[in-house]
């Protein structure tokens, strides 16, 4: 069976994306923001207030 050249390129591209995606998703399960005080899953709570036009954590 003859495989078209671009089909092969497409399959290789998908394999690269899924392979590296798997590595990134497996390694990267930390918080997005360093100043999180609580929260779970995708939602994070950061305590802050405004003082003199600036955010204070």
């Amino acid at each position: 069976m003859k495989i078209k050249k671009n089909t092969l390129f497409g399959v290789i591209a998908l394999l690269i994306v899924f392979g590296i995606g798997f590595f990134v998703f497996a390694e990267g399960k930390g918080e997005i923001n360093g100043k999180v005080i609580s929260g779970s899953g995708n939602v994070q709570i950061v305590k802050l207030h405004v003082e003199g036009g600036q955010y204070i954590f």
């Binding site: 590296i20 995606g21 990134v24 998703f25 390694e27 990267g28 399960k29 930390g30 918080e31 997005i32 360093g34």
Partner: peptide
């Protein structure tokens, strides 16, 4: 924490 902080967005 390079991968956990930035890996997702770089990907």
């Amino acid at each position: 924490d390079f991968m956990s902080k930035y890996g997702f967005f770089l990907f």
